[in-house]
């Protein structure tokens, strides 16, 4: 087990106006696992991802990664940990428009003050792996949305992160670009043995995962493990979505 999330909770707002985004969630993720986090809008997927990735602090609970309790670390150490061990792909890409493709991709290595040779090596490898060599000198404005997300993936992976966080990575993409990206992510997961945590509300995207947890109203509602057949897994996810989305009396979590 690589990641252990223990009874975390998070509220936004104060007193009467407080919104309970995450309520006492516990979760475990193994090394090299491709975990999907699903749920309707506002369920708390992004908040959960942000807390595990140390971008936000939980109000209560612990997040232990490789035996290290990240909630006890100082902001500065958290940032260092984030930079060295984690990679991020966001729905809005979060690329720096003032830098070109190459500069965006190598930024994590430059931040770690890696040597020039290593930077060039890793950059060339990553561009080949994701098949975007031709884009290296292009400005961000000149890329299509799909290309931008693949560049964002290259940036997230260049540091060889142990954990990759993807928050709605296909949210802004057309189906073709989304498929290409997901194939790459799956390839990275298999080749590099990178642990991947992906938040999505799209069943097709989630079907690439090895396991999917469903959250609703800040609590884990259910989870499904990929049986090895993607079509079957896809159907299971759709069914679960239907169950969650139905708002049936029986589907409302007990903790609500």
């Amino acid at each position: 087990m690589q990641i252990a999330v223990k009874n975390i909770s998070k509220d936004f707002g104060r007193k009467r106006n407080a919104v309970h985004a995450i309520k006492d969630i516990s979760l475990e993720v193994d090394h090299g696992e491709f975990l999907g986090i699903m749920g309707p809008s506002g369920a708390g997927k992004t908040t959960l991802l942000n807390m595990i990735s140390t971008n936000e602090r939980p109000d209560h609970g612990q997040i232990v990664i490789d035996g290290l309790d990240l909630t006890q670390l100082h902001d500065r150490d958290q940032a260092k940990y984030r930079r060295n061990k984690m990679g991020f792909i966001y729905q809005s890409f979060e690329l720096l428009d003032s830098l070109n493709v190459k500069e965006n991709v190598i930024l994590p290595l430059a931040l770690n003050r890696a040597n020039k040779k290593l930077i060039e090596e890793r950059f060339n490898y990553m561009m080949q792996l994701l098949n975007i060599e031709k884009l290296s000198d292009r400005a961000i404005d000149e890329l299509s949305l799909g290309q931008r997300q693949i560049v964002a993936a290259a940036r997230a992976l260049i540091n060889r992160p142990e954990i990759l966080f993807a928050d709605e990575p296909t949210g802004s993409l057309d189906s073709k670009s989304a498929t290409i990206l997901l194939n790459y992510i799956q390839m990275v997961n298999e080749k590099e043995k990178t642990t991947i945590l992906m938040a999505t509300h799209d069943a097709f995207t989630a079907s690439y995962c090895s396991r999917v947890v469903f959250i609703k109203d800040g609590v884990i509602f259910s989870e499904i493990v990929n049986p090895g057949n993607r079509d079957k897994f896809f159907e299971q996810i759709i069914n679960m979505q239907r169950t969650i989305g139905g708002g049936d009396y029986f589907n409302v979590s007990k903790n609500y």
């Binding site: 500065r76 940032a79 260092k80 930079r83 991020f88 720096l96 428009d97 003032s98 931040l111 940036r155």
Partner: peptide, 18 residues
Amino acid sequence: YQSTQLRTLQKIGVEESE
């Protein structure tokens, strides 16, 4: 636009001091 860039840096792990 400039504020967003600083925010992005923070998201990808740039330290507060940087």
